[in-house]
Design a protein around this nucleic acid. Structure first.
Lengths: 238, 238
DNA sequence: CAGTGGTCTAGACCACCGA
DNA sequence: CGGTGGTCTAGACCACTGT
């Protein structure tokens, strides 16, 4: 692990356990540099990570203030798999695989996934059950050229974990779009959605570390179970 | 302007104009260092900004790939005022101020805004009209201690611009939460919402550069006009 | 004024990629 | 093997804050 990452993780711990309480100042960069026996730029990398993730606010001439995260909710934002998310929330999720097949892309899918001429595509349809109700319908499309094999068991567990841990691929970033739509026939047949007039649709393109697009996902949520939190800085942290 | 910011802006231009085309490699950090007559760390700051904002993907041992932004949509994500947003989309927005008053906080508002004992709060209720329809209802609450005066004209233009340009305050970050709710009486009376069964509610806490909370906003959107795009990296850029 | 964070530099070593 | 980006260092100067 990198030095700045170790320092970052230690400081996250100290903030979350209250050793660095909210609204107080962290030790100065020079003090941290000495106590961690490193250079100031390395300390600054760790502090910038803390800043990006909403733990501190740096103020020139004063110091770094610890931000109160009590009501900050969990950082759902970013790129998190359903399983990681459900586990963070302490729920035991149930995933049901309704379809797992290899298809040829139609025109619409081609526009989202940019496959090569004869690429086959994995199509995976799953529902997610929380508290006894099916509230999420996920339709994933993955390039077979990137993910040669895929099984029902993998889809019931976590495709992300399979890709990163078993295949050794690195997922690097995603573009997402969140919209509200009316439920389709498919939503009605797969989800417990009676009495709801809208679904939240999240369309994502997911990219590997070489910037190649390998997955397109449409995730359809019952609106009462949807929640998205976001921490946004107005100016960049460098 | 900082050197790395100048370099960043120039490179954004070159990417957006196609001088650095999608899926090609940028010049290496050493080449950029020479051509911009600077140090490699400064180049790296600019490249990290490009990476954070979805313009490039850095690949160790190879170089920095330009990401295809053609379908990338505008970066709506982050902290952008309604006016900035509408102008980016080329629409002429109409803002109507329905209420501008000073109130004492009730218990719920206190929990969102943490005012001091006798702080008064500006309450601003506005609707946003696009294409002849009222589609957004904004309810803003601002600490009078941070914003001493507020006029109808300012609220019709942009409160953010007033705060940053006239008052000289720096808005630094926001925590947001996006939820789907059923329309209230108030939604029905202020918005053109007949036939819609849900509204998208964005609750935000906005903070100044000294990490002090000064604004709480509830922004209620008609679901058909709501769209949120997001670019998320799985690993930090440092 | 001393102390804080912000920027910039020059140099070093490393892990990784492709020829 | 040379070139790429990733990390780390030590030092310098700056702008800003408080006393």
């Amino acid at each position: 692990m990198n030095k700045f990452m170790l320092i970052y993780n230690q400081m996250v711990d100290k903030i979350e356990t209250g050793e660095y309480p909210p609204s107080t100042l962290l030790p100065s960069e020079n003090e941290l540099k000495d106590s961690f026996q490193t250079s100031r730029e390395t300390i600054r990398k760790a502090l910038n990570l803390l800043s990006q993730n909403g733990y501190i606010q740096k103020i020139r001439g004063k110091g770094s203030v610890v931000i109160d995260i009590t009501k900050m909710n969990l950082p759902v934002s970013g790129l998190v798999s359903f399983k990681e998310l459900a586990e963070k929330m302490g729920r035991e999720p149930i995933t049901t695989v309704h379809e797992l097949s290899l298809i040829h892309p139609d025109r619409e899918l081609t526009s989202h996934l940019n496959p090569h001429a004869k690429d086959l595509i994995w199509k995976v349809v799953r529902t997610r059950e929380i508290g006894g109700e099916k509230v999420i319908l996920d339709k994933d499309y993955l390039l077979k050229s990137a993910v040669p094999t895929l099984t029902k068991e993998v889809c019931e567990d976590s495709i992300y974990s399979y890709i990163e841990n078993k295949l050794g691929l690195q997922i690097s970033f995603a573009k997402k779009e969140i919209l509200i739509e009316e439920p389709t026939e498919e939503d009605h047949s797969f989800l417990d959605i009676d009495g709801f007039h809208n679904v939240v649709v999240i369309r994502s393109q997911v990219f590997l570390e070489d910037a190649s697009l390998f997955q397109y996902t449409e995730s359809r949520h019952r609106p009462d179970k949807f929640r998205f939190v976001d921490f946004a800085r107005r100016r960049p942290t460098v």
